[in-house]
Design a protein around this nucleic acid. Structure first.
Length: 849
RNA sequence: GGGCGCAUAGCUCAGUUGGUUAGAGCACCUGCCUUACAAGCAGGGGGUCAGGGGUUCGAGUCCCUUUGCGCCCA
């Protein structure tokens, strides 16, 4: 606890200009938020801070949600807990790759050798310059370091109470080691596995895409009605939007109950032009109302094809390559000359071109004109071409998508977590229950954490995927494209009897899902880790519950059979005034730095803290102006309270005046409410009750006790008022400090020692016996208000004299008013204050002089 | 099509387990230079709580339903 200062540094003209730079510097110099790693687990509050994507730019949404977390961090710190509040940078994955490509005008070509003297062009050229993987990664690292500086600057400006000595990157060596080690543990326990399977594939990025990264987009298309020759010479018409996949057709399918096609089940038809014999099969997923009710199954046109192919055990006839083009070689299942000629016409073409050529080639096989339609097509959320499905070898981690027991356990984990607000749990549950596959973690990209395995090559040079070579734990992190497995030499790379590195990197979530492990020193600093784990809080946005939150739960569950945190605080979106989500593409993004410059950090934080947990909040400059005014008001009110050498009283016994004691009783209730709100992660509610009290304190209490505090009614009466003012100010500043750290610290420094942010959170006990009858405040306020109203309606100054005011009401209310009648008469300039006991609500008859 | 949320004053939002006459700020109107603050202060007008039905002594609050909006997923 800060000790009363024997001197006061109250400025003549308080201002909030400059307080941000000044205190940010002091906090940094004094290590105000430095984490003390000697504390034990129960003395620590650990936060799993979301690492922002540094390759993007910060927007007001970041400011919004990070402020919420900071308010919680500051509250817990004042409650006496040692807060572990690190900052991470997410510089992993596609956004960084893309930004580097555009920023420097380069692209990664893994076949090129490393050039130690490489310097990117000063200006990105028209064509992207191909460079080696290592050069590319170096550029990624160079750019992200710059981005991080900008981010840290902004966060400091906003006043985040982060321990800046504890930062991490999701791509740094430590994170790579943690990520690879966790993967190898998964592999050892059989939770990570490889599978050759149809995979959703982005042809632009040439990478597999996980279920969590998909989105459906409405796209226009055309139905083509194609006739398949039946054995009896008739034609069976299917309708398809993808005629270019005809060569990949493996069957026709209709619903088992569809009487039109029941006679055909078990028979075969031949594909037009290609003349490939395919069976007619029945499956419940065939929709009798869609098109002609019978569809062609291709390997693979969409995810339903995959289901049919798997459940009906159909052959695999892929014709689309990893580049999204039709495979150049004529498939062996096409046996006729006309079939081969037709295929030659589409070989190597894009899906789009192939479609045009197939439609032309089919000619009379197509009945009627194409019928326009709109269909939901799957896209990679960051891509702009529809996903194809290709068969590839990929790594997976079990997440319950194929295992009911694990899925049930993970749903239960979600129920163990304290969600703020609670309804967010439903989003987790419905996502986990709807999973239909394991977690695809391998990506065919360059900048990321490499999968830490190699494969032996047999005498023909074919990799033995089933028995990967594992690095020793103390060598992590490794890059299998440059490191060599034990017992081999670099010369054996890629040669028969030698080895090859796994070429892929891990999904960015495979690393982000370990953010508490990375920040907390798992397997790197055991002493620190045991003081932090499991963490107390995961703050994050609601749209990544299915990705970041869920994958983190999966990793902690598999590794330690534990929930990674006790609480999840989910923040909402920032909406523009039209209630649309703010985004760059809509051109309505405001730069955070501009906001901080214009309104000040406390004002921006005030706006952010006014947004209820989990609630989407409108971007509202007006709210920031109110916050700024509040901050200025706090300075001015504090200046008044601290005038005339007010200090914290040695003994609360000097607070004898009933009105002073009543005010403190109300404040004690505010402390109770604000504390309960913060304990429930409701910073907005805590701010609201504090602010409401503060304004009433300024408008009523201060006005009432002004003259008494000046000493008009003697030293004891003045001492009571001054002591009460000091106690109230100290408590209010601490209640405000999580939201308004700068102005609170500024005022604190005028008269008390140490940082307010390390001062104890106020408690009811602090008031001791100084808290009196709270009801007196309301009773007195009614009279004061009535007097003001009379003056206002009489259009006279507030200092105009009142010749008499008669208060009528129940005896209890009158008694309360009497206890403050000296202050009332002074504040209202009332010559004669009379009382008239009467039933009903309190009323006041005011006569102006 | 499924899940979740939202709908309260012109605007942005509170309203904590059902309980006096539904609140705040902004905006608007009328005043007041008042020795902390004119970037201030005082006072005022303004809402059939989206529509309908139900439970209850009592519903903004609980249940059903309709409509509109948003997000996530299929």
């Amino acid at each position: 606890m800060s000790t009363p200062a024997s001197y006061s540094r109250v400025p003549e003209k308080p201002t909030i200009d400059g307080v941000e730079d000044r205190w940010a510097q002091v906090w940094q110099d004094q290590g105000t938020y430095t984490f003390d790693a000697t504390k034990t687990r129960e003395q620590i509050y650990s936060i799993d801070t979301p690492p922002p994507t540094v390759s993007g730019s910060l927007h007001v949404g970041h400011v919004f949600s990070y402020t919420h977390t900071d308010c919680i961090a500051r509250y817990q710190r004042m409650r006496g807990l040692e807060v572990f509040y690190p900052m991470g940078w997410d510089d992993n994955g596609l956004p960084t790759e893309r930004r580097v490509q555009n920023f420097f005008g380069v692209r990664c070509d893994p076949s090129l050798p490393y050039d130690a003297n490489f310097e990117p062009p000063a200006e990105p050229g028209k064509d992207q310059l191909p460079i080696s993987r290592r050069n590319f990664v170096e550029l990624c690292e160079r750019l992200t370091v710059e981005d991080e500086k900008v981010f840290e600057q902004l966060w400091r400006r906003l006043g985040l109470s982060v321990d800046w000595s504890r930062t991490y990157q999701t791509i740094d060596k430590r994170a790579q080691a943690v990520s690879q080690r966790a993967f190898l543990h998964n592999l050892e326990r059989g939770e990570a596995y490889q599978s050759e399977a149809p995979t959703l594939w982005d042809v632009t990025f040439r990478t597999a895409v996980a279920q969590a990264e998909l989105e459906d987009r409405e796209r226009p298309g055309n139905y083509y009605r194609i006739g398949f020759p039946a054995p009896d010479g008739s034609r069976i018409f299917i309708e398809t939007t993808r005629p270019e996949l005809l060569a990949a057709c493996v069957a026709l399918v209709a619903h088992p109950d569809d009487e039109r096609y029941q006679p055909l089940f078990g028979t075969t038809v031949r594909t037009p032009l290609f003349d490939v014999e395919v069976p007619v099969v029945a499956h419940r997923l065939a929709d009798p109302d869609k098109g002609s009710g019978i569809a062609m199954i291709c390997t693979f046109g969409d995810t339903t094809d995959v289901t049919w192919w798997r459940e009906l055990q159909l052959p695999t006839r892929p014709i689309i390559g990893w580049d999204g083009r039709i495979l150049p070689e004529t498939p062996e299942w096409i046996g006729t000359d006309i079939g081969r000629d037709t295929y030659a016409a589409i070989a190597g073409a894009t899906a789009h071109t192939a479609k045009e050529r197939m439609v032309e080639a089919l000619g009379d096989f197509i009945e009627g004109d194409p019928r326009p339609t709109t269909q939901a097509v799957k896209f990679f959320e960051k891509g702009d071409k529809p996903l194809e499905i290709v068969t590839t070898r990929q790594w997976y981690i079990r997440n319950g998508g194929r295992d009911d027991q694990l899925r049930t356990r993970l749903v239960e984990r979600g129920a163990e977590l304290n969600w703020h607000p609670p309804y967010m749990q439903a989003r987790y549950t419905s996502w986990v229950e709807g999973l239909n596959g394991d977690w695809l973690i391998s990506r065919q990209r360059f900048f990321g954490v490499p999968l830490p395995v190699w494969y032996r090559l047999d005498e023909h040079g074919n990799p033995e995927y089933g028995t990967p070579l594992i690095p020793a734990d103390d060598l992590l992190p490794i890059d299998p494209s440059s490191d060599v497995p034990a017992g081999y030499t670099e010369a054996q790379r890629g040669v028969p009897g030698g080895f090859m590195g796994d070429p892929d990197v891990m999904d960015t979530w495979a690393t982000s899902s370990l953010s508490p492990q990375i920040a907390g020193g798992w397997t790197i600093d055991d002493d620190l880790w045991k003081r932090l784990w499991p963490f107390d809080l995961r703050p994050q946005a609601h749209e990544i519950i299915r990705t970041w939150l869920f994958s983190s739960v999966v990793r902690a569950h598999l590794e330690d059979d534990v929930l990674p945190w006790k609480n999840a605080a989910i923040s909402g979106w920032i909406l523009d005034p039209d209630r649309k989500k703010m985004s760059k593409s809509k051109g309505n993004v405001v730069t955070p730095l501009g906001l901080l410059d214009e309104h000040g950090a406390d004002a921006v934080r005030y706006w952010a803290a006014s947004g209820r947990p989990g609630t989407d909040t409108a971007f509202d400059v007006g709210q920031m102006k109110i916050g700024r005014r509040l901050a200025i008001k706090i300075l001015n009110a504090s200046k008044f309270v601290l005038a005339d050498g007010v200090t914290m009283p040695e003994d609360l016994g000097v607070i004898t005046d009933p009105l002073d004691r009543a005010m403190l009783a109300v404040l004690a209730n505010v402390v109770t409410d604000a504390t309960a709100a913060f304990d429930d992660y409701n910073y907005a509610r805590a701010l609201e009750v504090t602010e409401t009290f503060f304004w009433a304190f300024c408008d009523d209490y201060v006005e009432l006790v002004k003259e008494r505090a000046y000493g008009v009614r003697g030293p004891e009466a003045a001492a009571s008022a001054k002591a009460a003012l000091a106690v109230a100010l100290s408590v209010m500043l601490r209640l405000f400090s999580p939201v308004l750290p700068f102005v609170a610290e500024e005022v604190w420094s005028w008269w008390l020692e140490g940082s307010i942010h390390r001062a104890p959170w106020p408690t009811v006990d602090e008031f001791g016996s100084a808290a009196g009858d709270a009801g007196t405040v309301d009773a007195v306020a009614i009279v004061l208000s009535a007097v003001r109203k009379a003056k206002s309606e009489g259009k006279v100054s507030m200092k105009a004299e009142v010749s008499s005011a008669v208060v009528s009401g129940p005896a209890e209310s009158l008694d309360r008013v009497r206890t403050a009648q000296g202050d009332l008469a002074a504040a209202g300039r009332i010559a004669e204050l009379g009382y008239d006991e009467a039933p009903g609500p309190v009323s006041v008859d005011v006569t102006l002089a």
